[in-house]
Design a protein around this nucleic acid. Structure first.
Length: 579
RNA sequence: GCGGGAGUAACUCAGUGGUAGAGUUCCUGCCUUCCAAGCAGGGUGUCGCGGGUUCGAAUCCCGUCUCCCGCUCCA
């Protein structure tokens, strides 16, 4: 992404040129919902088509389906979405940050996973206070003291209550680990923490809360009781990872949209809007296998809307509650899954480059074991450098045999596959590349957008690959002079059955070129007065501004060749003709 | 939900109590006009909504709605 591109520019362009509008705008808009306009719908359709072509059309091992958005409620029980899409959330009472409870507690590791022995020793000399004996199992080089507060009367300096960064550095000596100020040192096996006490005396006790700055480790609370010369350690229930504050009781949130099937709400059964299209492929696995007579490896692909009641959507069309998925479930023999996983990671990454995205704006990112979804054995993200930072375009997951096994269990149907070649029967593994259409559209817009100088004037242009451009050709009479209209209209009529073509005769020719640049139209066909005599028209190339002149009857063939990537000659014709 | 920001023309925004503005865009006309040309015209607004204060409110007060950003999440 170029440095001068921000989201506002893209949002503004989308609004002005008819790519994306806020949903229900005359009513003030609806949060996180967006409508695609005349240009946007073409671009989006082209993205879908490109995916479908690469995944279904050009492969003999993948077929498509289109399953319904509402599915049997038991599907979501089997898939695990009822459980894992229902996240208990807690909120910090102090800074009001919100977290998933399992992120803070369940999946985190203990910062002080063990104490060799209860902390039983401390000394105080001069103006320093030392606590010794903490054994910290922390690979990270820095942890933070999140909180230090007096818990009984005393005169420890208040400055201890502000956040202090504790850095692990080498001890000066193994025998006598040193401590200075508020730094934490690894002392052989354990750690020693020392605090500078400005005003302290026996009779006070102090509570310390330690936390890893990366938020990976569970916070630990240590109370040093000076009166009784005791140090006690407790693992507090939960503290806010960002400020160390107290958290509220967890509340349940279900990320799935719920609705009712049947006209009377009370009597109707609850159904969910699908949060992914994948389950449609799993529940139809057997249907597809038997009707297509395909053998494994076999992929089932689908493009369609999904719905997630995200706590916080945002970043334009990047995260919305209603969005469009392009998902492939690729069923393979267990044991071959890892090779196929690698294959699809590579294949999918290449796809974005083939769409014309700049390679430096794309990267692969492997999920850590901790971040894996409930069904995943391994997962890679394809990320794009959006204005707000690297964010995910697509996830490629090895879902193992999780889904088919779950559905077999819940439905009572045998979903194993009989491999005629080896004579074995097994539950296939699944590799799932799952991409977001809207995100891809956004990334393409950002990637294609550029501001350039032409003859000292600025122009905004979308360098979209021709296959993606909403309009392929614009027919532009040089002026609105009535003599030019008949031939121009004739050319338009000739081209529009073949390409998405628009016609524009308002205002100056230069202005119209700029308009087309801004929506990414690759070619403009200009009819001038000479055309009336020689029956030739000019084709102007969006990227190079070069022009060529071809007979009207050759336009369709030439445009088709250029749209398919035939190179354009470089001399700007108008420049040589004018002077 | 919490915090911050913002709602005025299609877009970007100015306008701190006195006739609602600018630039861009858009439209029409003229011009044998090739990269946002020129000239001449033109259009646009419940100033987010509802109350209140005031002779008078885009402006001050109260309420309310919505959007954007962050937290969160992940395609």
């Amino acid at each position: 992404m170029a440095a001068n591109i921000n989201m506002e520019k893209i949002v503004s362009l989308c609004k002005r040129r008819g790519f994306v509008f806020p949903s229900s705008e005359i009513y003030g808009g609806l949060g996180s919902c967006w409508d695609y306009g005349p240009m946007g719908v073409e671009l989006k359709r082209n993205v879908r088509d490109a995916w479908w072509k690469a995944i279904v059309q050009e492969r003999d091992d993948v077929v498509g389906i289109d399953s319904s958005i509402m599915m049997h409620p038991d599907v979501w029980k089997a898939s695990g979405h009822i459980d894992s899409f229902t996240d208990p959330l807690v909120e910090c009472k102090r800074c009001h940050s919100r977290f998933r409870l399992d992120e803070i507690a369940g999946s985190t590791r203990k910062l002080l996973h063990s104490l060799d022995k209860p902390i039983s020793w401390f000394s105080s000399s001069g103006d320093q206070l030392f606590v010794q004996g903490l054994t910290i199992d922390a690979p990270s080089s820095a942890i933070t003291l999140k909180q230090a507060e007096l818990t009984s009367s005393g005169r420890l300096n208040q400055s201890l209550s502000k956040e202090i960064l504790l850095e692990a550095v080498k001890p000066a000596s193994k025998k006598y680990p040193l401590f200075v100020g508020s730094q934490l040192y690894p002392g052989g096996k354990g750690y020693v923490v020392g605090f500078k006490v400005v005003e302290g005396r026996l009779g006070a006790s102090i509570k310390l809360v330690f936390d890893d700055i990366h938020g990976i480790f569970e916070p630990v609370e240590i109370v040093v009781d000076f009166a009784n010369m005791q140090v006690t350690q407790t693992v507090p229930k939960h503290y806010c990872p960002s400020c160390g504050g107290e958290l509220t009781e967890p509340r349940m949130f279900n990320l799935m949209f719920k609705t009712f099937m049947g006209p009377v709400e009370e009597e109707a059964s609850t159904v969910y809007l699908r949060p992914e299209t994948a389950q449609g492929m799993f529940v139809n696995f057997e249907n597809v296998v038997t009707t297509t007579r395909k053998k494994l490896p076999l992929g089932i692909a689908q493009i369609g809307k999904s719905f997630r009641n995200e706590i916080t959507p945002g970043n334009f069309i990047f995260r919305t509650r209603e969005f469009e998925h392009m998902e492939l479930e690729y069923f393979v023999k267990p044991g071959t899954d890892e090779a196929w996983f690698d294959y699809w990671v590579k294949e999918r990454f290449e796809w974005y480059i083939k769409l014309g995205m700049k390679k430096e704006n794309l990267r692969l990112c492997q999920h850590g074991k901790d971040e894996l979804a409930h069904y995943a054995k391994d997962c890679y993200d394809i990320e794009y450098l959006f204005p707000m930072g690297w964010s995910e375009l697509e996830g490629i997951a090895n879902r193992s045999d999780y889904d088919l096994t779950q559905h077999a269990k819940h439905s009572g149907k045998d979903l194993s596959y009989f491999d005629g070649e080896s004579g074995e029967r097994y539950i296939p593994y699944v590799i799932e590349p799952s991409a977001g259409v809207d995100r891809t559209v956004l990334a393409l817009l950002i990637d294609a957008y550029s501001e350039e100088e032409v003859e000292g004037e600025k122009r905004a242009v979308l360098h979209l690959q021709p296959s993606l451009a909403p309009m392929k050709v614009a027919v532009l009479p040089l002026s609105r002079n009535e003599k030019l209209a008949p031939l121009s209209k004739e050319v338009y009529k000739q081209l529009c059955p073949n390409f998405m073509t628009c016609y524009d005769d308002s205002q100056s020719i230069g202005r119209r070129y700029r308009r087309q640049d801004e929506i990414g139209t690759p070619f403009c066909v200009t009819i001038d007065f000479e055309s009336l005599e020689d029956n030739q028209a000019t084709i102007r190339d969006r990227d190079s501004l070069a022009q060529i002149r071809v007979p009207v009857e050759e336009l369709e063939r030439t445009l088709r060749a250029k749209l398919n990537g035939e190179p354009f000659e470089k001399t700007p014709l108008w420049a040589t003709r004018q002077k």
